[in-house]
Amino acid sequence: MNFRHLTAVFTVLCLCTADGWCSENARVMDELNSPLTPNPLKSAIGEALYNEAIASGEYRYTGNDKCRLCHRDFFIGRKHDQHDHSMDYISSGEFKNNPRCLVCHSTGYGTPSGFVLLEKTPRLSNVQCEGCHGPGSNHIKVASLKKTGGGLLAGEDNPERLKKMCKVCHTSRWNRSYNDFESAYSKYKKAVPK
């Protein structure tokens, strides 16, 4: 391999990177010019139920440290999941306080007791368990009384709501990490308590 070849490879790599950055940048620009992404929980369960649940005071975000008390294996497994690193994409840049981004890169943003700012609520950064299942305080209360669990606004017992939760953020713009929603959804194993 001579110098000319190396130069050709370098050029190709630069072009690809630039193309990727350009397209990523285009998606971000597109997102910034689009209507605000709605609150995922409110969209999934409907406004009436959302208002009733929040008003009751029973549904509060606890952070996944509390989930770990019973679902420890799932907690450890999630450390390899991109959801658990979603804040990394925005935390160092200009968008770290942008509501358009935070709504999908944190847990419970826009909901009372949910994520507010990295400085105020660092424990609710990233998309944690409650990011998809809704506030967990009521689940802890219910599961401590009966082994069957339950008590979540978007639990595994209601897959339709759960799928709606996914689809609020994973729009056609932000679905590059998967091709088929159903097969991606089915990859998530049940969080059997240990």
Binding site: L118, E119, P122, R123, S125
Partner: peptide
């Protein structure tokens, strides 16, 4: 205790 946030912020 979890100190992850200290390192980030």
């Amino acid at each position: 205790v979890d100190i992850s946030e200290y390192k980030i912020l």
